[in-house]
């Protein structure tokens, strides 16, 4: 009884003492906390408009609830004919990225590590980082130029005997290849750094021991180098799978046009158009929320799988 009575007082005392001691620290962290509240938590609370029929005049909180117990916007999205299309496009672009973009830096890192011509290694390494430093707007500007009827792609294909087309960015079937291809070009070198770092950490005695046992280059690569980077690969793969539904709008907005919506329109670009061009705020937020929920579930599932398969996991 006595202790129970003391506890609240005690707690207050501890709080006061902590505050007195760390006043300056709390003063320091105040703008940081304010930033997170103003620019992360207030927008998060705005997700409520996904369940409402948002009217700018009434504001977020006073707008009426959407029909079907607040789920009207979601039902509208699921019955929309574009639902299947943008879901498919999002999944396919992610799938292609996982199949083609993801292994590219691993292979580059292994190649760079294996090659014994050091000068070649240094030059290619430096050069392969360069595209990372070119802004997305400029990269997409370059791609637009290459895709023109008298652009680089048509000129290249002519040498190979492929017929020219008017503009590669008007061909729905070419978009995913262009998207993933430029992605590999821009990020392969940069993303290889992390693998090279992991490879650099291998104990050289392991290689020496393997050589004594008669292991050749291929065996060393397979049984020493690759296992060292495997945890890194798995970790990055989980993060990549977690981003499956998260195909960003920036690059697609810079590249697509209405003639290739069929393959290029993804959930995020649809959200952008519905929200900021058609001013259908509630509907757009609902689409976005649906996306985030699936996304979060994917991160959890990917993590579960990886912690079963290996000992690497995110949380």
């Amino acid at each position: 009884m006595k202790e129970k009575n003391l506890q609240p007082k005690n707690r207050k005392y501890i709080l006061a003492k902590d505050f007195r001691r760390n006043k300056v620290l709390y003063l320091m962290v105040l703008p940081v906390v304010a930033f997170y509240i103003l620019f992360s938590y207030v927008p998060m609370s705005g997700i409520i408009i996904a369940f409402k029929d948002y009217k700018p005049m009434l504001g977020m909180w006073k707008s009426p609830w959407a029909d079907s117990w607040g789920f009207g916007n979601f039902l509208e999205f699921f019955s929309n004919p574009f639902f299947g299309r943008i879901l498919k496009n999002t999944l396919l672009i992610s799938l292609y990225s996982i199949i083609f973009s993801f292994p590219a830096p691993v292979m580059l890192a292994l190649l760079l590590n294996e090659v014994r011509l050091k000068k070649c290694r240094r030059v290619v390494q430096t050069v392969s980082y360069m595209p990372h430093f070119i802004s997305l707007v400029v990269v997409c500007g370059m791609v637009r130029q290459f895709c023109l009827s008298d652009g680089l792609f048509n000129n290249l294909f002519q040498l190979l005997g492929v017929d020219s087309v008017n503009s590669w960015l008007q061909i729905p079937g070419a978009f995913r290849t262009i998207y993933v291809g430029t992605d590999i070009w821009q990020s392969m070198g940069w993303n290889s750094i992390i693998y090279l770092a992991a490879i650099a950490g291998v104990d050289h005695q392991l290689y020496e021991a393997a050589e004594i046992d008669g292991a050749g280059r291929w065996k060393k690569l397979l049984h020493i180098t690759f296992p060292t980077i495997r945890p890194t690969i798995i970790l990055l793969l989980i993060m990549q799978v977690g981003k499956t539904m998260n195909v960003g709008y920036e690059k697609i907005l810079l590249l697509y046009n209405s003639t290739i919506y069929e393959t290029a329109d993804v959930i995020s670009t649809y959200t952008y158009r519905k929200g900021l061009l058609d001013f259908d705020y509630s509907y757009s937020t609902a689409v976005n929320l649906f996306n985030s929920v699936i996304n979060f579930a994917l991160v959890i599932i990917a993590n579960k799988i990886s912690s079963k398969v290996s000992e690497t996991s995110l949380f």
Binding site: Y36, S40, P43, M44, G46, Y272, G275, Y281, T285, N288
Partner: peptide, 23 residues
């Protein structure tokens, strides 16, 4: 608590429209 407040924002965000309306 501050740490948790920060970590949460790495997994959840308001998304495009709520952020736009807030800003």
């Amino acid at each position: 608590p501050v740490n948790i407040l920060i970590i949460i924002t790495m997994y959840f965000s308001g998304g495009l429209i709520p952020t736009y309306l807030t800003v």
